[in-house]
Nucleic acid binder design. Sequence first.
DNA 1: CGTACACCCTGGCCGC
DNA 2: TGCGGCCAGGGTGTAC
Length: 296
Amino acid sequence: MKARYVLAFKQSITCPMPELPEVETVRRGLEPLMSGRRLDRVQARRPDLRFPLPDGFGQRLTGQTVIEIRRRAKYLLFDLSGGETLIAHLGMSGSFRFPDPDTPLNPHDHVLFFTDAGHADAGREIRYRDPRRFGFMDLTQTQDLLAHPMLAKLGPEPLSADFSGTALANALKGKKTPIKSALLDQRVVAGVGNIYACEALHLAGISPKRSAHTVQGQRAERLSEAVRQVLTDAIQSGGSTLRDHVRPDGELGYFQHSFQVYDQFGSACPVCGPEKTIQQIVQAGRSTFFCSGCQG
DNA sequence: CGTACACCCTGGCCGC
DNA sequence: TGCGGCCAGGGTGTAC
């Protein structure tokens, strides 16, 4: 590996990446601030995010009460009193913020929610910010929610009883792609992104290069348990974030989960010690971090 | 059908 | 120091 190649890798792993644990953390933070609240006004400051916002977006939300905020994979689902559900995906850089009154708008504050009641810490206005605009929002009838194109093909929730070693093994049958790429396939398991795919494989001691269909039996059991474990741990620590992902409880202190392998290129493997350093390769256009020792 | 990859977007970082 | 180039990421669309 050429030195320049190494540098190029090292310099740019700084983006916030909301995966399932981060989205769950956002959901838990939003719940007390929005659930049961009426939306007095919702303003989209531009007509699109990743995709065009639905027609009449602001008007359709205005006057509705948020019944409940749910999560499916990396999607936030806001059930509304009028029978519609707001679907929101944070993409790579989306965040909800709770500015003090009179806080100037940031150019990337794209959607503003004004709830019907203020909070002691001035949480009345909630802003959705998304510099890279990889996130999106859509409105759909709640009763048709599961048929929505973004949700229809999702695999099992990794933290539900639907996800098990057997379920994973079945989903991997016949798949010739590397197991790392298969874990990113939302039809196999929903909500796992690049970070936790790497972490789960390391915890399970499985090479990211292993052909997906060979992960069966005890190996599949180990991997499914590892997926569950790394996601649970991350939720526990408040969702891992990089750089500027802000917790929706308004706490501004940045926090960062420490990863065993992700973004740890060149570091000693936490399992194998200094004899083995974390490797970095590209699979399906995405960085994979792993240890050639314990994941051999 | 499954698999592979380009595309969208911006900020941050490095090299020049 | 300023600026160009490169890179991260998820999900979709297109090509094979």
